[in-house]
Every structure is written in C-alpha cells, then in structure tokens.
Write a protein that binds this DNA or RNA. Structure first.
Lengths: 275, 275
DNA sequence: ATTGACTTTAACGTGACGTCAAACTGCACA
DNA sequence: TGTGCAGTTTGACGTCACGTTAAAGTCAAT
C-alpha cells in the first residue's frame, strides 16, 4: 500500500491527477482511511492507471477511457470508437496542415513585402436563402449599375424592410467585362408570394440561393466597377492556400449603394484543390 | 449602424462571440446606447472582425490577435509570432501523426486478435537519480536472483527506508541468458556518502542513473526470470509505433520481491525510428 | 513538544466561447 | 392603450483535464 505521494512518484504523475481521477470515479484508491481520509493505492492499481494513460494518449476523452476500461463495450464498439477517433485525427491533421500552409503563405508575404496585408480573406459557410432576383446579360458595367439602382428603388419601395436582407449579385459568367451574365436581387428572410414587377415590365422571380459549405470571402469598399481588384486578392489567396473556385461568385452589398461607392462582401464558393 | 443581431447575421458569427469580443476589448461596438445598453456596429467594424477571424483561424490566441491588430508589434515581431506558431503546428502535426499510428496499430490488433490487450505500454520520462549499485556479469538467472536477495537484505538493513527508492536492475547486455551484464541496486532519494559492503566483501558504488526523455514502459507481474515476455510485448509495440531502443533497459521493482514473484516496471529508453 | 514532510478538502484559473435565465426594449397590430 | 413577440441586456454556469495556491489536519522523527 502506497500513500498518494509515493504512488504518484512511482507512476510519474501528479498527485492532483490521482485525486482528480478519484473524484470522477475513474481510479479510486484501494482503500481510504476512514478517519484521516488518506488514500492508499496498491501496485495493482498501477496497471489500471497505465491503461488509462495509454488510452488517454491516443487522444480519447476520459469519458471514453472509462467506458473502455470498465468493459462496458464490446470489441465492435471499441473498434467503432477507435475508428471515430481515427477519423477525427485525420481531419484534424489536414486542418493543421492547412493552417501550416496559411502561416507559411503569410510568412512569405512578409518576406516579400515587408508587412502583413490582405489578411482579411476568411472562410465561411452560408445557409440557403430565398432570393428575389432577375437574371440578365449585360454589355458593360454601366448597364449593370443602372439596373442595380432600379432594382434597389423598386424593391425597397415594395418589400418591407424586415423581410429583405442584402442586395446580392451572382456572377454566372467569368471575367469578361463585355458579356456579363448576372443575377441581381435581394436575399429574403422568408419567401414571399407576391411578384415584383420592374418599371420595364419584366418581373423578378423567387429562387433559392443555395447553401455553400466553403466560401472564401473578403470585404471591399469602393466603386462597384472596381470589384475585380478584390477578385485578384481572392485569387492569390486561393492559389497560396490550395483552393479552387467551385461555383458562381457572389457580391453581397452590406450597405445599399449610395452614389458610386459601395461596401460589399465578395464571396467565392471554393473547394480544396486536389493537386 | 446595425444592432447586434443583424451584424452577427451579416458576419455569420454568434451574438455571444460579439459580446465576448466586446468584453475583452477586442472589438467594441462603434456606439453603445447610454440608456438601453444596446450595441451598435458599423460595416467598418466588419473589416476588423474579419481580420480577427482570419488571424484566429491561423491558430493564434485572441491575445496574440489583439496585439497583432492593434499594431503594437513590428513586422519582425509578427514574423517571430508566426514562426513560433509554425513550430507549434509542426510539432502538433507530428504528435497527431504519432497518435494516428498508435490508433491504427490498435485497430490492427483488434482485427487480428479480436480484442484489445497489451494496451498498457506507455511513454514516460524520468529524471536522473542517484543509484547505489554493483555491476556484475552473470552466467544465468539463478545467480542473478541470489545476488538480488543478498542486496535487498543488505541495503534494507543498512539504508533507512526514507532514503531509498526502488530496487532497479539495469541491463547492459542484450538478450543472452548465458552472459548477463547487469547493474543491481537501489535508486536513492538523495546521495549518501556512506559506502555499503556486501557479505562477499565487495562494495556497492554510488553513481547517477541518467535522466531519460522517452521511456517505453510496462508493468509486469510474475517471476523475474520471465521478464523476457514483457520484453517481447515492448518490442512489438516499438515496431508498431515506430520507435527503437536507445539505451540500456531497466527493471524497476515496484515491490520488493517476495519469493519468486515480483511486480516490476520494464523500461526501455527509446527514440523515434528514422526509417 | 516541535519540527518538517506529507496529506486532506476547497477554491480559483485556464480559452473561447455555448447555453440557459430573468429582465428589459422596440415595434407592429388590435 | 394594451398586448404580443422578437430582439437585447447582464449574469451565471458549463466545457476539459487538470495546475496552482491556501488553510487546516496527519505522520514520523527528533
């Protein structure tokens, strides 16, 4: 029988750990003195402690360790737990590797440019939302800006503010300033069944803007004609961090555009490059 | 100006996170209503929030993020922080990879044997400690057991219990039952300057048992002649997990041997295989 | 009797929030 | 003017696996 100090020395763990394991019922001393409360351990308990430490080292939680050790689970369930843990580890491995790539690209950026800029690209996800919009082809940015104004005026007048979210432009075409294929419209908090007719007698339709898991985004301030500058930064980020475009990009106007200036979030659906 | 709900919707973060960042002074709303306490954010703050999230994604702590964002550090210091973080990441990567290998070896074990045994090998480290011992060559286990008994009797009689730790055998030879080169003696809590003389007139010397970083250990019960069984299990574990022996092995007797039986911890200094 | 080493319980701290709970505000509708 | 409901506030507790004091009691040797 060892008291806690000697036992902890032998096992090379802290006394606090032993008291903690006792308190959660994971490893209780063989005997506790009724009057003094002193804990007494036997070498037999060292085996159990070692099993606990070994399983804990695999990254299992103490809860899982307890269930494994107390034989409350079949070998199949053990297999399941280990497989689950394996999947977690693999995921966390690739996440850490990605972080490492990000860090390295930042370091490279510092080395090349002497400072830390454009560090505002971030990955998000977004749920699906109803989308009141109209899809058109445009010959140039002027036409786009004109329709944008019209739509803002029409929709703000006809749809209550509580129902509509942001003004969103979805770009179906690639970067060709002379043949733009765009959806322009508003995200909605809830679907509406009224139809909206624009001054030119065309009407806006309700569709669903699909959810996206991985969205590389950045905020841009300035005239909407120059949004391609932001596109460039996003492209660099994707290249540096191993992502590629995976769907039509979106521009979400965080403020309704006043004059030429606007504040928007540029969003690119992305997926990891297989390369 | 957005209230917290809308701002959190736009940024796709929780309101709780915004309140938390406010409370730690990382991102305070542009304006707080004096009577109601309502927080009001502007789109400008979205930029700062995005910077925070981007840096946090690199795995930096919020403390570090705050120092980076508030420009309290030079680019050289930023480089330093990122390099530090990179080192942490690389370490954590290899640790996770090791865990993954452990898990896989466990799964393989289950697949081959249908259950989970011998999972009590664990890695520890140990500090240096004074070691009162004598080194001999032995022709067989019987001689070893005889000297062991003698040493136990002599030392327990001459050295106070508070000063000595466990009985430890260090094996300098490889596995050759007919030519054993062993140190036999006791670990000590503090060095002593008395010399100990055995009945055969040879004396025990004080040396230092060196510290070891990585020690693969397991507990064994049973007659000490059969300790090679434990050696086999340790060898398997090392092979499965990519370690190799890196120094003389030790047997630490957790109980003074009574009769033939003993409880010991077998310890192998190890290092990662370069293969 | 007095040390000094050891042990006990209890409480707080860690990091970055999630999750209630109770009270208050803002706004639309009757 | 009241009522309802969605939104907001502060505050507190929980997370996970312990480390770190702190105050009080125990053990063995001198």
């Amino acid at each position: 029988m060892f008291r806690i100090g000697e036992f902890s020395r032998i096992a090379r763990v802290s006394g606090r750990l032993l008291r903690y394991y006792d308190s959660i019922g994971l490893l209780s001393p063989q005997h506790v003195d009724a009057t003094t409360g002193y804990r007494h351990y036997t070498i037999g308990q060292l085996g159990r402690l070692n099993r606990i430490l070994a399983l804990k080292d695999l990254g299992l939680t103490l809860d899982q360790v307890a269930r494994l050790i107390d034989d409350k689970v079949s070998t199949d369930e053990i297999r399941g737990m280990l497989l689950l843990r394996k999947a977690e580890l693999e995921q966390s491995l690739s996440a850490e590797a990605a972080r490492l790539r990000h860090i390295e690209s930042r370091l490279q950026q510092i080395d090349e440019q002497g400072e830390l800029k454009n560090y505002d690209v971030i990955l998000k996800s977004t749920p699906a939302q109803p989308y009141l919009s109209t899809r058109r082809r445009f010959g140039g940015m002027d036409d786009v800006v004109a329709l944008l104004r019209t739509i803002v005026q029409t929709v703000t007048a006809q749809v209550p503010a509580g129902l509509r979210n942001e003004l969103i432009v979805v770009a179906h075409s690639d970067f060709d300033d002379e043949d733009l294929d765009l959806d322009i419209g508003f995200g909605l908090a809830k679907p509406i069944n009224r139809s909206i007719t624009l001054p030119d007698q065309t009407s806006m339709t309700i569709a669903e803007l699909p959810a996206v898991d991985a969205l590389a985004t950045l905020i841009r301030r300035g005239p909407s004609e120059q949004s391609h500058i932001g596109f460039g930064a996003l492209g660099l980020w994707m290249e540096a961090n191993g992502y590629q475009i995976d769907g039509p990009s979106r521009e979400v106007f965080l403020e309704l555009p006043t004059g030429a200036d606007a504040v928007m979030e540029i969003q690119f659906p992305v997926r990891k490059s297989t390369a």
